[in-house]
Design a protein around this nucleic acid. Structure first.
Lengths: 201, 201
DNA sequence: TTGATTTTAGAATGAACATTCTATTTGTTG
DNA sequence: CAACAAATAGAATGTTCATTCTAAAATCAA
């Protein structure tokens, strides 16, 4: 069924609030971004926001959901024939996402989301849901299409590289990406290597 | 020169505030932890805290400094003869630090510190200082003791594994560490492998 | 002990904030 | 167009908070 005019306007308004909130959250964090500032950015009155969201917490939850969904989307459509190909694509993706300036700002929001995740069960639930979705896709690819064992562990390890790289860039802003790419590709390849060297203790 | 009684008392008081602040920050985050709550936890009056810290921001900075220094300490005393040995020790360290419950709670604080790092130059400075210290130690070991090239990149890549693992555990609380250890060791070994496979595009 | 200094508590202050309330404008429908 | 409903603004409310102020208690020096 098509949306009525009123519904369309309502959705546009909600998106307007979310865009404004995302902007303020990136700049100030969840708890220093006031409703007044979000309202100003969204070009509506503070009181009016409450016609679309029950509370500021609800806005935070909606932002976490939207941002997680977007991140998951960017991950969703991998399609590789073998592990070498997947390693290359994943490396490219990891380095590319880092190279964009926007993603570095986005990182701050991501970190805040993860911090919130430890304290707020509702936020935790949202984040875990999206993470599970991404993992399921990737695990399916690794296990069923490429045919490797330990697919879950390999998936998690691949994802360690992504979040680790973002984290690293915050801690070391002088990071030299050029040499990093070589190592990242080698690492991805190693994670997807069919034979794991079981080192004896 | 030994500390006078007054100085000792003062230092103890400061530590008391920092312990209380750390506790409240882990539980509530920087901005929902009020001075009143920190004071209650530290068993002193809110006003009195201002004899030791100029502002709440100063307490946050002190906590970031103290926690970063502690994390750096835990990293400082590596001493390996070859890359295989280092890979094993680093893996053990990474998995061990994750296995402790305390570190998972600590992770929330770490994430919040990194988020703050993007917005507050003073915090950024503190975090980058400690990160540089750890990197210098590890790079020295890899380049001068073990004798590998691309030491800085390898160092950063090792550290990607640590922060990535902490990050991953927040997003996927069901992570299976048993299989992960195998992959982590293989990854560390691969990063420290003398010959890097330069994949052609 | 006495006077001076430091340490401490707790109330007072003023600002910022999330949320609610009231009224006005805008759009819709008969 | 008239009546109604939805959308919107902006002021009002009550709370929470960081910080400051005031004075009491503890410590120390003589």
């Amino acid at each position: 069924m098509p949306l009525t005019g009123a519904e369309k306007r309502r959705n546009a308004r909600i998106a307007q609030v979310l865009d404004a909130a995302a902007h303020c959250f990136v700049e100030l964090g969840f708890h220093r971004a006031s409703m007044a500032k979000i309202a100003a950015k969204a070009k509506m009155s503070p009181g009016h926001i409450y016609h679309y969201f029950e509370s500021k917490e609800a806005i935070i939850a909606a932002i976490v959901d939207r941002e997680s969904a977007r991140a998951a989307e960017r991950f969703a459509e991998f399609d590789a024939l073998d592990s070498t190909e997947l390693a290359a694509v994943m490396t490219e993706r990891a380095v590319l996402s880092i190279a964009e300036k926007t993603d570095i700002l986005q990182s701050a929001l991501n970190m805040e989301m993860l911090a919130e995740c430890q304290r707020n069960p509702e936020i935790a639930c949202i984040i875990h849901k999206h993470d599970r979705y991404v993992r399921d896709q990737l695990t399916h690819l690794i296990r069923d299409k490429i045919g490797l064992d330990l697919a879950e562990a390999r998936t998690d390890m691949m994802m360690v590289q992504f979040s680790g790289l973002a984290n690293r860039l915050l801690r070391n802003p002088d990071l030299d990406l050029t040499n990093m790419v070589v190592l990242m590709r080698q690492t991805m390849t190693s994670i997807l290597s069919p034979t794991l060297c079981q080192k004896a203790k």
